[in-house]
Amino acid sequence: MLPAALVGVLVGAWQVAASTGAIADALNLDPILVPSPAEIAGSLWQNRSLLAEDAWVTLREMLLGLGFAVLFGLAAAVAMHLSETVRIAFYPLIVASQTIPVIAIAPILVVWFGFGIGPKLWVIALICFFPITVNTLAGLRSVDPEAKKMMRTLDASRGQILWRVEAPASLPQAFSGVRIAVAIAAIAAVFAEWVGADAGLGHLILLDNAQLQTARVFAAVFVLAAMTMALVGLLTLAERRIVTWR
């Protein structure tokens, strides 16, 4: 209830400030650059088919990119957990991978990989796997050593300890890693589309920014936020069904 009330107050204030031209005057701008919520809503409705088309493109990129990020993120965490050598060798590289300024090297990426969906998935997976790997690894490493000893005396192999004890024990942390990944996947998708795209919400935002279509920029951002919140909601539902012991 409280978040809804807060949003209501903020949107109301924005509406008043924008429709009276207060913000534009204060910033010394043309009022067209400062759309009111009502104008954004109007743009949302008028452009619904265009926005839906672009949203679908972006959603697909986000889901596929997240899929790769989860697969790679979990695999990397397990590999680094099972082997000290792998961890020492790869952990710094994985941290370093997060410093790649994707936007800044976008032109090179376009030259290298072209305009297809492939490079976008790489960009999204590159940005999103990190919280998954780091959280899952932390979860795997914090498993009660006594529980592992107990399993050893019950004739468990290393794989059985991983599957029956360590994996379930680290699920809550893996989920929180995935939740962060989902939250940043939209930003990652927009970055990926700026690298070079002919469709998608990020692409639309880029064009509309250039053409001063500010109401539609905000409409696209709104759709992006709504998609992300829906995905986080679905993930929370899934977590509640899977992690029943918390």
Binding site: T153, L154, D155, R164, W245
Partner: peptide
């Protein structure tokens, strides 16, 4: 030797019977 630790260390994601049967599953 089977070792029974100080704390029961039952795995919370398993039912009582699956906890008891861990050695068989292993």
């Amino acid at each position: 030797c089977a070792f029974m630790p100080q704390r029961d260390l039952l795995l919370p994601w398993l039912s009582a019977i699956d906890n008891a049967a861990l050695a068989l599953r292993n």
